[in-house]
């Protein structure tokens, strides 16, 4: 018997999906290199003698005004950005999806509370809200993550609740109720698999936004504090130098771009691969 293809096979059929996955994997690998202290230089070590060198054999991405290695700082910044993105999106997914699914499925007053609360959060511009929360929480990477998580939770509430509301009205859910299935079974086996795809896609996309938000916060002087490296902070610090040391601005910016594009491509690829109807045409 021919083995049924699973979604991984379908994912691997899409060129853009593979490109995205490769880009993201490269960035994760680089972060891990930094996490294990295997970077070519210490990202915090200052070498005033080597300040503002262009890319060369020793300093692949050049150095900044303190003579710190931009490559090592970039991958360390990537590590920090990815950590913040993963933690914040993880928290937002956990809370947002739970609230959205429960609200959408149960309806009534629970749903009302969930929707009103998320509307209030939505009403604030994301970056302003994150700024305010970071200000009151503190500047550690966990504080930053919690702030971003709070900002993103309503997005996940919406992403989960919308499909739950429409799936709930489908005849196959009515049929499941007539067949006497328990609510946990209906939720777990009939509703969740049908709202799973948009959530996974949203996770991939939100990771890329979270990286941008973290960069934005660092750029504005919140979040990661000097001398620690963060991609956003590096871009912020490099602004004044860009005119005569392009590399100090270019490489952190390129890293942000690569990881954001990569995550977006992964999100698109997952959306196609997870939908049985969409993949049947290929």
């Amino acid at each position: 018997m021919k083995r049924e293809k699973n979604w991984v096979n379908y994912y691997l059929q899409s060129t853009s999906g593979i490109v995205g996955a490769v880009l993201v994997l490269i960035m994760i690998t680089l972060s891990l290199i930094s996490a294990f202290g295997l970077a070519p230089h210490d990202p915090l070590e200052q070498n005033p003698m080597d300040a503002l060198q262009g890319p060369n054999g020793t300093y692949w991405f050049g150095t900044d005004q303190f003579g710190r290695d931009i490559f090592s700082r970039s991958i360390d910044g990537m590590r920090r950005s990815l950590s913040v993105a993963l933690l914040s999106v993880g928290l937002a997914t956990l809370f947002g999806v739970t609230l959205g699914v429960v609200g959408g499925y149960l309806g009534r007053w629970i749903d009302n509370i969930v929707v009103r609360t998320s509307d209030v959060i939505f009403a604030f511009p994301a970056i302003l809200l994150a700024l305010a929360i970071v200000n009151s929480l503190g500047n550690s990477w966990i504080d930053t993550s919690v702030a971003i998580a709070i900002v993103y939770t309503p997005i996940f509430i919406r992403v989960a609740r919308g499909p739950v509301l429409s799936v709930k009205e489908m005849d196959y859910i009515k049929s499941a109720r007539v067949l006497g299935y328990s609510s946990p079974r209906i939720l777990g086996r009939h509703i969740m698999p049908n709202v799973f795809a948009p959530i996974v896609v949203q996770v991939a996309l939100s990771l890329s936004w979270a990286i941008l938000t973290e960069s934005g916060l660092s750029f504005l002087g919140l979040g990661t504090q000097p001398p620690d490296a963060s991609l956003g902070l590096m871009v912020s610090e490099a602004q004044a130098l860009a005119a005569f040391a392009w590399w100090s601005l270019a490489f952190p910016s390129i890293f942000i771009t690569i990881v954001v594009i990569g995550l977006n491509l992964v999100g698109d690829g997952l959306r196609d691969a997870l939908d049985p109807a969409r993949r049947s045409t290929s």
Partner: peptide, 17 residues
């Protein structure tokens, strides 16, 4: 339920996944 239902729309009456 001792009564079971067959719906009109064959596209929405089966769980697509």
């Amino acid at each position: 339920s001792p009564a079971q239902l067959v719906f009109q729309d064959p596209y929405s009456s089966l769980n697509p996944r």
